[in-house]
Structures are given as structure tokens and as C-alpha cells.
Design a protein around this nucleic acid. Sequence first.
DNA 1: ATGGGTAGT
DNA 2: ACTACCC
Length: 548
Amino acid sequence: MEFSDELECGDEGLLSPPHTHQRTILHLDADCFYAQVEMVRQPELRDKPLGIKQKNLVVTCNYVARSQGVKKCMWLKEAMEVLPELVLVDGSDLTHYRRFSTQISGVAQSLTHRVERLGLDENFIDVTDLVDEYMNATGSSDIEGHVFGDKEPVSMDLVDPCGCGCRERLVAGSLVAKQLREQILKETGITVCAARSIPGIGSTTFSVLKDLGISTVQELQDVPLKLLRTKFDSETCSRLKEVSNGIDETSVKKSGKAQSVGLEDAFTKVNSVAEVKVKYQILLERLLKLLREDGRVPVSIRVSVRKFDLAKRFGHRETRQTSISSSLFPDGVNNVGENTRSSLMKTVMGLFQKMVDTSKDFHLTLVGVAFNKLIERVRKGKDISSFFGKRTREETTETYKYTTDNECKRLCVPLSPEKSSDGHESIREFEQINMDKLNDKSLLTSEPLDPILELESTDCRRVDNNTEDSDLVLKGIDPEVFRSLPEEIKQEVLKTHACPDRKSLTQTPSTSPVKTSNQAGVISIEKSGTIESNGSGHSGSKQLWAPR
DNA sequence: ATGGGTAGT
DNA sequence: ACTACCC
Ligand SMILES: Nc1nc2c(ncn2[C@H]2C[C@H](O)[C@@H](COP(=O)(O)OP(=O)(O)OP(=O)(O)O)O2)c(=O)[nH]1
């Protein structure tokens, strides 16, 4: 977790115009997220080198594996060469990760509604109100202590040269951060840490910067604008310059419900309509399940393919979309009948054939389907009057039929900032935190990654299904079609139809599994070398992207 | 690459 | 419909 507040205000040049430093924003990032989820689900994986695999890719791995040379997004083959004893768990189905992710954001949302999600494992949390309340309640002169980095304590004396009050904000904010991390660990078993990134600077931007010879925050600050302009438009340049000086006025935007919900399946080759149908059918079934959890009704569907293309083989997808008749979900999304399913499948295949001429040879490497516009459930008949009748005045703007989430958001902007009752409880808890007294140490530490245990090797997991002996009745799939399918596809069909969820998430982490769990988070300060750390910025004391 | 997302054009 | 960006 990162606590973002102005750190660069020691630079005199930045003091005009004066910063008021009014916001306090936390930036949370779960460590090796998918791997951690699997370790919570299967604690025996804890001390083994664990890789999360999707097809031929190891998308992430735990720190045990990282210490042995496994990298994120490494080819499976390469990873197994580097570390033959790597234990693999398939992470193609994001269901569990999605659930943990929702849970993590939920803990943050119990503090404030001002929570913005980024991907499954990052959250921006605007805790300004909580911090203000805390400071008003205690009097800022009573707020003393240290802010902790992930590993090293950081002296507050060194981070508040500007005297605008941000020092107290930093301390109070770090207390919120600490408590939030502990609560997330308690409720989900997941440890979160300082985000080591600056929003808006991901791997793409970083590699462009690198080509310009820019790898550190300092270098980004110093680079001539003209040089930047050769690679970025002027708006991006301004943003880059600002964030390099720790300035980011972007507001934390509440992430309501998703704008779209979709699923993809990638593979090396699919070239028959029968296979395509099966792929879409499986995706659609899974998607309807997701939809049920979402609760909204889809009004638009999008189908995508990726065609094999040796020449211009950048990750190009084609998509086609169409609207969905509201009559397909007369009772909402909870019970979707066979008619609706087959109608959706027809729609999907219709869209598919707009992209692929199935009378000729084709070679696909991915199919996908998404509901890309969703609305709150439509009430009908009697329900609609009671629906309207029960609403309070403030809520009535929500009740338009067929209002999309976006439109709804615009209409529902609250007139006054909300205060959660949770906030007060939290404030009380802050007061119980006993601040450690710690020696001031150098701010400019670049610590190595955590020490990681050496471990014994373990077998890779493998599942072999035999499809010959099964006479399963497969929902919605013609047995003759099934028999005609390639063996791989059969396997997949059997897997998705025969394999219910394994474990529930109710277990709690037995012991605090990881090292840093009692520390608040974070102000990371640049050592000199890499772009890995820098704290700064009022809304965004972030570092540049840190490849690890 | 893989399996998702967001926003802008 | 597609692009560029994010995780
Ligand atoms: N399939 C796929 N998944 C990704 C990609 N980037 C990130 N993820 C997933 C896997 C990660 O566990 C999760 C969070 O991404 P992060 O970039 O924060 O990495 P992670 O948390 O695994 O490791 P970290 O400890 O932050 O270095 O999102 C990607 O390009 N493809």
C-alpha cells in the first residue's frame, strides 16, 4: 500500500503556487495476487515455489518462485527450465480472483465509498475525510510518529519541510493504511503492499521512456520537454512531467459496477464450426453465471475472434456487437431459460459469421464473448409501482427504466459528501494504535526483495481425463457433435461440465503468512538508481513503473 | 502471449 | 469497431 502525499515539497521550486495538500489517498496493491489467492485456498502451497499458469504462460508466481528466477508473464517452457520443481496451478478461470478482489475492495469501501479499482488487485482510496476527522478530533499537534515504508521506517521529520500540514496528514493517513491492511489480511488472508507504480505509467509507457534513456523519476524530471514530445502527445507529456514532480490532481473515481463483463478463451488452433460452437457455448454458460452475480440485465452483446495471421500478428481482435432484446430476460438474470440460452447462442454465432467466412478454411486463436452494456433490472407490472413508491426523494433519479449504469451515475451524484458510520469506529481505533519509536534511518534505502526461503522441489500437477469412457449427457451439446470434436475440446467440455467449485473461501489464514504485515504503508523514496521508488505527489505519490 | 478491464476516437 | 492503455 502506498500512502500518497506530497513529499517533494522540499523542492523550493515546487512551492509556488503553494500546495495546499488537501487530499490523502492510499494506493493498495496485492502482492503477487493470483498466487496469493491460491496459497490462501491451498495453504500447503505456501512454502513451495508456485506459478499461476494460463495456457502456455506463467502469468505470475509467488515470491518463493521469484527468488529462484521465475518472472511474471514468462513462457511456461522457460519457467520450467529455470525451475523444474515449480508447482503449477491453472489460473485461466478468474472466478476466485474476482471474488477475493471484490472482498478486498469491500474492506476499503467500508471506510469510504471513494474507492477506485484498477485491475483486480489495485485500489485507490481517498481517505481525506477520515484523515480530516482524525486531525480535527486529536489536534494535529498530538499527531506524532513515524510513517513506515514497506521495510524501513521513514522519519516524518524528513518528509515535511513545507509546513502545510501534510506531515500530519501523512501520519494520520499511514494509520488508516495500516489498519486497512490489517483488516484486509484478517478478512481475506491477502497481504497488500505499497503500489510501486504511478498511475498512467504502465509497461508500455515505461518501455517508451526507457528507449529515451529514462529509467528514474529524476531522469523524467530532468528530460527536456522536446525529447518527450517526440514520443508522446502534449497532454501525456504534461502528465508525465507533473507526476515526476509528484503532482497528480486526478480525482479518485468511484468504481461502481463494471461497464462490461466478458470472457475469452485463447488456443493455438480452432478451425471447425463445431469447435467454435462448443467454445462459445462454454463461455456463454460461464458468462451467464457471472451475470447472475452481477444482477443486471445485458442489453448488448459483443463477440470477438482473433484470427491466426503470421504477417501482422499483433494481438488483433475483431469484434461484432448487437443489442439484446429485453424480452430475453423477462425475469431478470437469475433464472435464464433454455430458450434464452439458445437464442443467445444464435446471436453469438450470427455475429461470429459476420467475421469469419465459414465456407472457407479459417484458423482462430481466440474467441470471446462479453456483455458490454448492462442495466439495472427492469421492474414490470405491479412491481414497478411499488418500486417507485418506495423510493425516497433522493433516490428517484435512479428509477428511470433502462437507465444504464453510466447514466445512473451521472444522475445520482450526491449533493453532499457522505459520511460512513464506519468512519467513526475506525477513528476510535486509530487512537489505540501505539506508535513505535524508531530510529531515523536513511531515507534513501533501496532494499532488496524480501528474503525467501529455499525449498524442496515438488511435483507439478497434472490432470489426465479420459474422454473415451464417458457417456455424459452434456447440456446443450449434441452427442454426435461431441464425438466429432478433437480430443482436446472433448476434454475441455468434460472438465467444465464435471468439475464444480472445489473450496469455499471461508478459511482464514492460519498464521500471518508474510513478513511485512504489521507495517503501515508507505512512503517509498528514491535511492538514485532505479525508477522503483519515489514518493511524492499529492494525489499520487507514486513511482514509475517498476519491472520486477 | 493470457484473461481480463477502462476510456477515447 | 477499433485503438491504446491498465492490471
Ligand atoms: N493474464 C494476465 N494477467 C495479468 C497480467 N498482468 C497482471 N495480471 C494479473 C496477474 C496478477 O496476479 C494480477 C496483478 O498484477 P500485478 O501486475 O500487480 O502483479 P502481481 O500482483 O502478480 O505481482 P506483484 O507482487 O505486484 O509484482 O493481475 C497480464 O498481462 N495478463
